[in-house]
């Protein structure tokens, strides 16, 4: 059975939506990081799917996915380091603990 473009696109966009929802509602910084990872990965799926369905003759989208994965890894590593720093300072990874500066 041949799957259509939408069959890939819907899950990836749902994934992106879940990421945005998680980013806004989660209170734990690690959970926020996971949500961000969901968003970044749904972009990779988008690129790969658009490439193989709409423009099968070229590889540009695939290359973008590859680079985006590497960039996402770098971002996660740095964000984790910052979360660890915050943990050392306040002994917690709850986002409500870091609301000293406001407005």
């Amino acid at each position: 059975m041949e799957l259509s473009l939408l069959m890939y696109l819907i899950p990836s966009l749902v994934m992106f939506g879940c990421g945005v929802y998680g980013f806004i509602t989660r209170k734990n910084m690690i959970a926020i990081l996971i949500s961000l990872e969901l968003m970044l990965n749904s972009v990779d799926i988008n690129f790969a799917v658009f490439n193989s369905y709409l423009f099968p003759g070229q590889m540009e989208g695939m290359f973008f996915s590859l680079f985006a994965i590497a960039i996402a890894a770098a971002e996660t590593a740095l964000a984790l380091a910052i979360v660890i720093n915050v943990y050392r300072k306040v002994k917690n990874v709850d986002i409500k603990e870091i609301t000293k500066m406001k407005f």
Binding site: L40, V43, E75
Partner: peptide
């Protein structure tokens, strides 16, 4: 302490914005 709080806020918003930007790029593609 403020430096850490600022870094966490900067990092999360920066990654969030680049994810949104790249989703836009995928549609452009």
């Amino acid at each position: 302490y403020e430096s850490h709080e600022a870094a966490a806020k900067y990092m999360f918003t920066a990654v969030f914005s680049s994810a949104i930007f790249m989703l836009g790029l995928s549609f452009v593609y």
